[in-house]
Amino acid sequence: MAEDIKMAKTAKCACEAAFVGLYACSGGSNVGQMANRIAVELTKQGKGSMMCTVGIGGNVPGIMKSTEGTDEIIAIDGCPLICARRTLELAGFTVNKHIVLTELGMQKNKELDLEGSEIKEMMTKVESAFDI
């Protein structure tokens, strides 16, 4: 018997405009953390939805099925190791846009805290270089 459970209506629905999945490497460096932050900021701006990149590596069913349901995949990597892109491609997904922050001039180091000015600068570069 059918039953409706009505609660919060905040799910990202595929009925809306093209669903853009944002996959950040979120790695253990300044550029990895910046990749994470850029995915957060783009999500806040409504330019895509941050997804769980690690869930792709872990082959988590809900995350894999959600990725199959995206219209466009953007991988955001901090450095040339391109872990996010590799993870997605190993799982059989096609990356439509690929951002590598070191290619936009950011120097990689082990710092994990980000300055507000750095975030603003990289957001401007990403939006400009990738027409996001």
């Binding site: 059918a2 595929a14 069913p61 959600s66």
Partner: peptide, 29 residues
């Protein structure tokens, strides 16, 4: 029918609609 995004995210589902049969996510988006 489950309209709670938190319940969807418990399954790792980040795009709807999705179908879950006996706890197994079959499709999303």
């Amino acid at each position: 029918k489950v309209e709670d995004i938190n319940a969807a995210m418990d399954y790792g589902v980040m795009i709807t609609p999705a179908v879950v049969i006996d706890g197994d996510v079959k499709i999303a988006g």
